[in-house]
């Protein structure tokens, strides 16, 4: 008797469901003069809390500049790799500048701006211990749950002839946990986007290095609500203007320039429409 009651209520709960407020975010942003942008909190140097407890980073600056170009105020919302897409779907935020790779699967749920940052997936390991992923195929590798890097590593391991890749990949909830597992020696390598790895490696200079080839390309896009063309056009135009007048490179050099601990030469150019 009790079982059937519980099942019935579960069914009723199932009827209540999550939501995605489709619709004209752009009009609301322009009316309220405020855009809500999701930014990460523990991605170095993308967006993190520095030693003074201030929220800073590359994504943070891009988001601030974006709001300025749209001519509206910014409301920064903290997101993580779990909430950065759900918040857009729910309409809790209007855009998500949260080092997010533009993928086809994600494209099914939200829209993306043009690529505003180029990254590739690599592996971080103790200096001088391994040369490539093939050297660590008997060891464990750390990734973050629900990221593209998790899937890429499993695929790469499978291609190297590892029978059960799931058993060789440990997926944590946060980047800091991955790094701790690496420091502790629980995993031989930590695989995610190279910029994130550089950020962590710079904290203990000389102890960790990037190894092997790029496992994949990771083009970053700004996540936007599905089917809001006006907002997407506005964001794309703002990004291209930032590139054209050099603001983009200023921000880039502030975080990834040659004098920074995360030095990474800029090789490409973002998509520019005449």
């Amino acid at each position: 008797m009790r079982l059937s009651r519980v099942l019935a209520l579960t069914l009723a709960l199932v009827m209540m469901a999550s939501v995605a407020f489709a619709g004209p975010s752009y009009d609301r942003i322009m009316k309220d003069k405020k855009i809500r942008i999701g930014i990460m909190t523990d991605s170095i140097p993308g967006a993190f809390f520095n030693s003074k407890g201030e929220w800073v980073g590359f994504d943070y600056d891009v988001a601030t500049e974006l709001a300025k170009r749209l001519g509206v105020d910014i409301e920064r919302v903290k997101v993580n790799n779990k909430t950065r897409i759900a918040f857009i779907q729910q309409g809790r935020i209007d855009a998500s500048v949260a080092n997010m790779t533009h993928t086809r699967e994600r494209e099914k749920s939200i829209d993306f701006s043009i690529t505003y940052f180029f990254d590739g997936q690599k592996i971080l390991a103790k200096t001088g211990k391994y040369k490539s992923l093939a050297d660590m195929k008997d060891k464990k590798i750390a990734t973050m749950q629900g990221t593209t890097s998790e899937i890429n590593v499993k695929r790469a391991l499978k291609a190297l002839g590892v029978a059960n890749p799931d058993a060789h990949v440990i997926s944590f909830q946060k980047e800091s946990e991955c790094f701790q597992a690496l420091q502790m020696g629980r995993v031989a390598g930590w695989s995610t986007d190279a910029t994130i790895l550089l950020g962590y490696a710079s904290k203990t200079p000389g102890k960790f290095e990037l190894v092997g080839e790029f496992l994949s390309d990771e083009p970053y896009g700004i996540g936007l609500p599905q089917n809001d063309s006006a907002l997407r056009n506005g964001v794309n135009a703002a990004l291209q203007d930032m590139w054209r007048d050099g603001t983009y490179m200023n921000i880039y050099n502030k975080w990834y320039g040659p004098d920074t601990p995360f030095a990474m030469p800029m090789t490409g150019s973002i998509e520019l429409w005449p």
Partner: peptide, 27 residues
């Protein structure tokens, strides 16, 4: 799931993260 064990909650989270169908997975 916090220490990376792929238990029931972890798998539900995984489905949510990969397909964004969190409602179905959590149900």
């Amino acid at each position: 799931m916090i220490v990376g064990v792929a238990d029931l909650t972890w798998q539900a989270q995984q489905v949510e993260a990969l397909t964004f169908k969190g409602f179905e997975a959590t149900t």
